[in-house]
Every structure is written in structure tokens, then in C-alpha cells.
């Protein structure tokens, strides 16, 4: 697993719900490429065209609240997002992100410490976040061993396959 992710930041406020991350009217799409085209469409129509591999989504509290749609994680992953940093996450979104191997990290104060376009570096194992543009550094909440184990396996699917001896 890549434990350090560096990319430019896209910054959002509190309570960005999954309808904004991935609008309900596109839920019948199933191919990640099609799904990627609508990433963040409800909150930021420019996101899908500007996001590059390894970029980082930063938000205030309760990011990904609302519907259980896994599309919300699939779309961010497919758009290239390398990690999501927020003050807190909607719980189903958090589970979905970890299950699909996308690091979702609780980092108090992150939304105020980062502006759109800043280059941010996240060390998941060490639990540190650095804003390369401003020089600010922050401490993230450590992920539980259970969650780290899923991420280390590249997500829960490879982990289950391994446990089944496949």
C-alpha cells in the first residue's frame, strides 16, 4: 500500500452529502469510467475535469453523509482521488471508502488549514498531514488496526479473497 499521498487539494464545507458527491439520477450507471464523470457534480461542477490522480479532497464535518451509495466512493476513486481528509465522515461513506481501499482520514482542523489548490501530503501510517504550500502541519486521528489492515490489503475484496484462499 502507498502510505504517502501527495496532491492538490479540493476543499469543501460541512455536511457534503452523497447526493452532491454523486447525484441519484446517475445511480443506474455501473462502469467506473461513466461514474467518474459525475464526481462531486452536485457540489462542484469543475471537480471532475480538474481532479488529477493523487489529488486530495478536504472537507469539514460529516463528509459523505446521506445515502449509502457506494457510487460516492467509486466516483472519487475513479476520478483519481488519493485520500480524503475531513473533520468527520458520514459512517456509511467511511466504511465504503475503507472497503474500497480509499483512505478516509479524520483530521481535526484540516478544512481551515488548507485552501483549494494547495499541495497537501498525507502520511497514512504516521498519521500526519502537511500543507506543502503553506508549511502547516497537522496530526490526523490514527486509523484502527482493523481499518489499516483493510487498507494494507488494498481493500476488503482482496482481503476476503485471501481469507477464502483464492
Amino acid at each position: 500500500m502507498q502510505t504517502t499521498i501527495t496532491g492538490k487539494a479540493f476543499v469543501y464545507g460541512a455536511n457534503v452529502d452523497t447526493d452532491q458527491i454523486y447525484p441519484g439520477r446517475f445511480l443506474d450507471l455501473t462502469d467506473p469510467e461513466d461514474v467518474a464523470r459525475h464526481a462531486m457534480e452536485g457540489a462542484d461542477p469543475l471537480f471532475a475535469s480538474q481532479c488529477a490522480p493523487g489529488d486530495v479532497v478536504v472537507a469539514a464535518t460529516n463528509f459523505g453523509c446521506g445515502s449509502s451509495r457506494e457510487h460516492a466512493v467509486v466516483t472519487l476513486k475513479a476520478a483519481g482521488v488519493g485520500a480524503i481528509l475531513a473533520e468527520s465522515f458520514g459512517r456509511i461513506f467511511f466504511r465504503n471508502a475503507i472497503n474500497l481501499g480509499l483512505p478516509a482520514i479524520v483530521c481535526p482542523g484540516v478544512q481551515e488549514a488548507v485552501a483549494r489548490g494547495d499541495v497537501v501530503s498525507v502520511d497514512i501510517a504516521a498519521g500526519t498531514v502537511a500543507n506543502k504550500t503553506t508549511g502547516a502541519t497537522l496530526t490526523a486521528q490514527p486509523l484502527s488496526d482493523y481499518v489499516m489492515n483493510i487498507l494494507r490489503n488494498g481493500g476488503i475484496k482482496p482481503m476476503i479473497r485471501k481469507s477464502l484462499g483464492l
Binding site: 449509502s68 457506494e70 456509511i92 466504511r95 476488503i156 477464502l164
Partner: peptide
């Protein structure tokens, strides 16, 4: 409530964390 992959884990193992 859970997402699709969590539910699939139940389909495979009968359990969820």
C-alpha cells in the same frame, strides 16, 4: 445501513464487522 460491498461480505460470509 451499509454500502454494496459490505452487503456482499454478508452474502459471502454471513457476517459483518
Amino acid at each position: 445501513g451499509v454500502g454494496a460491498t459490505d452487503l456482499a461480505i454478508i452474502l459471502v460470509t454471513g457476517k459483518l464487522w
